[in-house]
């Protein structure tokens, strides 16, 4: 484990649990920030999680499996939601944004084919130019 780059392992784990690619994750510009944040917040649990992940040979990662303890399971959920929303969930209800940037960089917007409200505008009329509804002509 000592020779393994734990930051790199964190990114690999993140790819697996979020369903996003490394490029997607790096494009947030917050990868190092997130890693350092979690490492400072939950150093032991993160280390344990990464160690365990290192020895899991599967890429299809499911939280249903009893492979992870409750504590590790919760940390995985926190990491998923941090990437998706920019929020740190203290429990399933309470959370806070790490920063205004983490709100904007939430991958949820990419996941739903949208943009963070208040940032990255999509252009005049873009809301009426669908990729799904080809059968509906513009008036």
């Amino acid at each position: 484990m000592s020779r393994v780059n734990t930051y790199d392992l964190f990114l690999k784990l993140s790819e697996t649990i979020t369903g996003f690619t490394r490029v997607d994750l790096l494009s947030t510009g917050l990868d190092v920030h997130y890693y350092e944040f979690i490492n400072a917040k939950e150093p032991k649990t993160l280390k344990e999680l990464l160690k365990k992940y290192y020895f899991v040979p599967c890429s299809d990662f499911s939280l249903d499996k009893s492979y992870f303890s409750e504590e590790l399971n919760f940390l995985i959920k926190q990491i998923i939601l941090l990437w998706y929303t920019g929020r740190w969930y203290i429990n399933s209800v309470n959370y806070y944004y790490l920063s205004s940037e983490s709100y904007k960089q939430g991958l949820i917007w990419k996941a739903i084919n949208a943009h963070p409200f208040g940032a990255n505008p999509t252009g005049y009329g873009s809301w009426g130019k669908s990729i799904y509804l080809e059968d509906i002509n513009d008036k």
Binding site: T16, I17, T18, F61, S62, I76, K77, L81, S92, A111
Partner: peptide, 18 residues
């Protein structure tokens, strides 16, 4: 969209591509 992902993760234990 936050409420949806919250429930998918915390209640339905979804992760990854799914």
């Amino acid at each position: 969209p936050y409420s949806i992902i919250n429930s998918l993760v915390f209640e339905k234990n979804n992760s990854g591509k799914k």
